[in-house]
Amino acid sequence: MYTASKERYTAMEYNRCGKSGLLLPKISLGLWHNFGDTANFENMKQLCFTAFDNGITHFDLANNYGPEPGSAEKNFGRILKEDLGVYRDELIISTKAGYDMWEGPYGNWGSRKYLLASLDQSLKRMGLEYVDIFYHHRMDPDTPLEETMGALASVVQSGKALYVGLSNYDGKTLNEATEILKELHCPFIINQNRYSIFDRTVEKNGLKDMTDRLQKGLITFSPLAQGQLSDRYLNGIPDDSRIRTDGRFLKETTLDSHRLEQIRKLNNLAAKRGEKLADMALGWLLQHKEVTSVLIGASKPQQILDNVKATSCAPFSEEELKLIDEISQS
């Protein structure tokens, strides 16, 4: 039986999520990869234990995480039942719905029918009575925003979620959704979006600025740009790389000569700071006042231990920030 480290809260730092009462660890664990049916269950357990032992209290899932869809929630539910569940009140567990999950017209996007049914399925797979945060996973151009936000309000009213969040929204739609949720007295506290040195979409679509103006939390995923912002590809693509074994996310064509040169220049800057590239990339995100937490993925416990170090990265000088922009946006 797993027993959590008594030192688990000594090193991790926690940020307030917007103006809410909820604190999130600066580093959170995402279960997007490495928790599906093709992964090793014992390794999944060690990833969760290592995270919690080092103050990572937040575990982020979605209905379709796998493969197969639903399997990440199922496997995490087993870990909760066998070991981690005794610490439930110390955990923040989030899940989402918005992408294709089951066959037919009711298993996708943002209808009330889909969202409520999906959350019931997620709770069943994880063996939980409620999640701490339930997200709508992406904007739906065809369902009225009032319907989607009304469904989010309903899950809180029913006791199946404590807070709600929005994922992959832009600034304009975030503002509109916030007004609706405010009228419904729904505790909307957080946005989840892709953000990294290489991906500045939230800076361009108004999401980052709107998050700050509305005083909502922002948790970022793919902070290392699927491993590009690490020492993984400094010398090309390794034979055992996920690019070669699982091409669903990072494409080999992305790592052209220009991108590899950018990675090497950023790595040189990190070395001058006395850091690894991954540490600098995570630290770069955390130095933005809008960012509440950074979601990491891991295939080995050691990666979690390495990433946690980013919470103590040295401050960035204006010159360093300018250089990072020049390298990454060239």
Results as ranks from 00 to 15, higher is better:
257 S>P: 02
293 S>K: 11
318 E>Q: 12
222 S>H: 13
228 Q>F: 08
302 Q>C: 13
182 K>W: 11
185 H>M: 03
255 L>G: 02
184 L>Y: 02
247 G>K: 08
311 T>W: 13
191 N>E: 04
202 V>A: 08
209 D>C: 15
229 L>S: 08
315 P>D: 15
196 S>G: 05
229 L>N: 00
312 S>R: 13
288 H>M: 01
227 G>M: 04
295 L>N: 11
220 T>K: 01
323 L>Q: 14
312 S>T: 15
314 A>H: 14
274 G>V: 00
314 A>L: 15
240 D>E: 15
197 I>T: 05
317 S>F: 12
240 D>Y: 12
234 L>N: 06
247 G>C: 07
196 S>C: 07
257 S>E: 00
226 Q>K: 14
313 C>Y: 13
324 I>V: 15
224 L>P: 09
209 D>V: 10
293 S>C: 10
199 D>A: 01
233 Y>D: 04
275 E>Y: 02
313 C>V: 11
227 G>K: 04
189 I>H: 07
196 S>M: 01
239 D>R: 11
246 D>C: 02
322 K>Y: 03
303 Q>I: 13
282 L>H: 08
304 I>G: 08
227 G>F: 00
234 L>W: 13
321 L>D: 06
213 R>T: 15
260 L>V: 04
269 L>E: 02
240 D>C: 05
224 L>Q: 01
223 P>A: 03
295 L>H: 07
261 E>R: 07
264 R>G: 12
220 T>A: 09
259 R>W: 12
250 L>S: 09
247 G>T: 04
258 H>C: 09
299 S>Y: 12
199 D>S: 04
222 S>G: 13
278 A>S: 06
195 Y>H: 03
317 S>W: 14
254 T>A: 13
185 H>C: 09
295 L>K: 10
210 M>L: 01
247 G>W: 06
250 L>N: 09
308 V>M: 04
219 I>K: 08
243 I>S: 04
183 E>R: 14
208 K>A: 10
185 H>Q: 14
270 A>H: 03
241 S>K: 03
323 L>I: 13
284 W>M: 03
204 K>P: 12
216 K>H: 11
301 P>F: 01
276 K>R: 05
272 K>G: 06
301 P>S: 11
232 R>Q: 02
218 L>A: 12
186 C>R: 05
251 K>A: 10
277 L>D: 01
302 Q>T: 15
236 G>D: 14
256 D>H: 00
260 L>M: 08
266 L>H: 07
315 P>N: 03
276 K>M: 07
271 A>L: 13
237 I>D: 02
246 D>Q: 10
310 A>Q: 05
206 G>M: 02
206 G>N: 07
312 S>C: 14
256 D>L: 04
240 D>S: 14
198 F>H: 11
250 L>C: 02
305 L>D: 10
183 E>T: 15
272 K>F: 00
257 S>K: 04
209 D>S: 15
226 Q>M: 09
282 L>K: 00
265 K>E: 14
197 I>F: 03
283 G>K: 02
217 G>I: 01
307 N>W: 14
249 F>N: 08
286 L>R: 06
291 V>C: 00
236 G>M: 05
299 S>G: 15
266 L>R: 03
309 K>M: 12
249 F>Y: 05
292 T>I: 06
193 N>F: 09
324 I>K: 14
244 R>W: 10
283 G>A: 05
312 S>G: 15
282 L>W: 07
211 T>H: 00
266 L>Y: 00
